[in-house]
Amino acid sequence: MKLDRKLFSKEVILFHQDIATQDEIFEKLNENLLAKGVVNDGFLAAIKKREKNFPTGLKLESGFGVAIPHTDPEFVNEDQIGFISLNKPIQFRQMGSDTEVVEAKMIFILCLKEAHKQLDMLQNLMTLFGDDAKIEKLYACKSIEEFLNLIS
């Protein structure tokens, strides 16, 4: 149940942000990912569109809400995960549903070039989502070092 620290090497890890809309989340993450060369110019438009058509909110067993936005590999230069935790939850639609919404408080943005090679990572991320205590700790987390120790 470990995520490779390399996937967070660009340190796009933002804690307890005050953000009011889903668009703002994507803009903030995109700005950071773009500056570090993880994604290309088409990423922002693609991720917004993709989330609209194929929502990625997930309500976990404890009721905690997360979202795992991701898009086609052509907008990604390097495998990486960006993270943002929010002071106030923002609504995402539940994955696979046209009616349910999730109050998401943590966003893991998955920038993947070839997901097939990242199967372990994706499975480990899902295992992490099943660990209520760890999810609470991640949400409370305030430093990148602490964050990396929790996930890896």
């Binding site: 991701h70 086609d72 590999p73 997901a115 994706l122």
Partner: peptide
Amino acid sequence: GSGVATSTV
């Protein structure tokens, strides 16, 4: 949606 991420899991 993309055929690469969640379907892989």
